[in-house]
C-alpha cells in the first residue's frame, strides 16, 4: 500500500511537471518519469509483461523520438508563439468543463470488486496474456495490427523521396 501511495504521488507530481515545466525538454523528461511510475503500478498489479512493454515502447522508443524532435526544434521563450487572451480563456473553460463532466460521470461509479478466492493472480503473466489475446480476442488483435500496418504504410509514403527531389 505504501509503495502504491509513493508511486501515485510521484506519478501525479511528474504529470504536473509535464504541464508546468517551462522547458519542453524538461517536460519530456517528466513524462518519461510518469511512464516509469505507471509501469510500477502495472508491476503492483502483477502485470509484468505490460510493465516491460510500457517501458520498451513508450519510455524506450516513442519518448526518444519526442526528445529527438524537440532537441532539433530549439524551442525557447523567444520563439514561443503568443496566444491571444481570448484563446486562453476559451481553452481554460473547455478543459474545465471536460474535467467537470469526467468527475460527474465517475462520481457514482463503484469499482467492480473481485473475489480474492477465485481471482487468478497469474492473469497478467505473459503466457496467460498470449492465450487470451490469440484465442478470446483474436479479431480485435488482428484488426489493431492492420491499423498499425496502415499507419506504417502511410508514414513510409509520406517519407518517401519524390522523383527528382533531393533531401540533403
Amino acid at each position: 500500500m505504501s509503495l502504491f501511495l509513493f508511486l501515485t504521488f510521484v506519478a501525479l507530481l511528474s504529470a504536473l511537471g509535464v504541464v508546468l515545466a517551462k522547458n519542453p525538454v524538461h517536460s519530456v523528461l517528466f513524462l518519461i518519469l510518469t511512464f516509469f511510475t505507471l509501469s510500477g503500478h502495472y508491476l503492483l498489479l502483477n502485470a509484468q509483461f505490460l510493465a516491460a512493454v510500457n517501458i520498451i515502447v513508450y519510455a524506450g522508443a516513442i519518448m526518444v523520438l519526442f526528445l529527438f524532435v524537440i532537441m532539433f526544434l530549439n524551442l525557447n521563450e523567444a520563439t514561443e508563439p503568443k496566444k491571444p487572451l481570448l484563446a486562453k480563456v476559451a481553452a481554460t473553460i473547455a478543459g474545465g468543463s471536460l474535467l467537470l463532466i469526467m468527475v460527474a460521470a465517475m462520481r457514482n461509479v463503484a469499482p467492480a470488486g473481485y473475489d480474492a478466492a477465485t481471482f487468478n493472480s497469474q492473469v497478467g503473466m505473459v503466457d496467460k496474456l498470449g492465450l487470451v489475446l490469440f484465442q478470446q480476442y483474436q479479431l480485435p488483435f488482428e484488426l489493431a495490427s492492420i491499423l498499425l500496418l496502415a499507419a506504417m504504410v502511410g508514414s513510409v509514403m509520406l517519407g518517401k523521396r519524390e522523383t527528382g527531389e533531393r533531401n540533403f
Binding site: V25, L29, Q48, V53, I55, I56, G60, L67, F68, V126
Partner: peptide, 25 residues
Amino acid sequence: EVNVGMLYIFGVVSLGVYGVMIGGW
C-alpha cells in the same frame, strides 16, 4: 529471477540512449 527477463534487458537497453541524449543536448 523474473519471467520477463528478456523484455527487461531489452527495456533497459532501450533506456540506455537517454544518458547519451540528455548529456549531448
